[in-house]
Design a protein around this nucleic acid. Structure first.
Lengths: 158, 158
DNA sequence: ATGGTAACTTCGAAATTTGAAGTCTGTCAA
DNA sequence: TTGACAGACTTCAAATTTCGAAGTTACCAT
């Protein structure tokens, strides 16, 4: 398959991984959710090299996850803002937080729900009955297309 | 900072990214949740090269996310199983699915909640009041330690 | 003894990443 | 009017990682 083919897979998980399955992209997103907008701040807080940061920001803009906005004309200055598509990746970062805090220890980040004021650790729930969900509680049914893709690969062809 | 320092950060998100913020690790996890256990099946279904697969599986075992179990003595044969720590990464894969399906289009994966039988798209909710959550609904308060780490970096030192 | 399966390992070429240094455009303070 | 500074990058050589094809080890079946 090769990594660059992930985007064309019949699996929505693969397609998503192609866009955001990169440590620096995830670090950039974490920062964006904390309010970071400027190149040099991403640089300092993520620890990525300037070359890579430049590449990744371009890629994230191309993918519609961030947008580059000129916030000063003279001299030209730019900032990077989350789009709706980008903001919808917040559960990814939350899930990383939850897992990191549960299984990796170390210092923590506390979350408060503005709506009800409770201090929370948000998890996945069934939108229908409200029950908390784990891997065992859900059955996944993949598309016919994806089923075919898997069989083709199992055969060893491609 | 450099990528290898992520593990020691005061941020639980960074620490998690160090372990699972890699496209092949995520693909391996996706497969594991679908029931894949054997080397050659991971190989075929993820498209990773055998060398990298070997490395990543080792790393995932070291991190306690998978465990390597001998399922045949003669000849020696091994399989890779999710641990509790690994199974707890299921929300990551779900979140990737949700986002990929919403924003990237293409074929989909349907989920059914065993408990209530409903076809669902699970999202994050407040465990206290049950409301669905987005980035705007939650305030994050970072640890004093992490605050310090950020200030140090902002200064340009390190 | 030939072919097949499973789980890997090896290796050279190709691609990516790192880190330090430099560039460009303009502001501000002395 | 000169020099320091800020922000947003770009460049480049060296180091590291990844790719893909081929090979290895250990068995079983025919």
């Amino acid at each position: 398959m090769g990594r660059s083919d992930l985007a064309n897979s019949s699996c929505p998980v693969s397609r998503a991984i192609e866009r955001v399955g990169d440590p620096w992209v995830l670090m950039i997103l974490r920062e964006a959710f904390v309010g970071t907008r400027r190149f040099d701040d991403f640089l300092a807080q993520t620890g990525v090299s300037p070359h890579l940061l430049s590449q990744r920001l371009k890629q994230l803009c191309d993918d519609g996850i961030l947008r580059r906005r000129r916030y000063c004309d003279h001299p030209p200055r730019f900032e990077y803002l989350l789009t709706d598509k980008g903001r919808d990746l917040w559960p990814m970062i939350m899930t990383l937080r939850n897992w990191g805090q549960t299984w990796l220890g170390g210092s923590s980040v506390r979350l408060t729900h503005k709506g009800c004021g409770a201090r929370i650790d948000p998890g996945l729930t069934c939108p229908d009955c409200g029950a908390a969900l784990t891997a065992r509680d859900v059955v996944a049914e993949i598309s016919e297309e994806f089923e075919q893709e898997r069989k083709r690969r199992k055969g060893g062809t491609q």
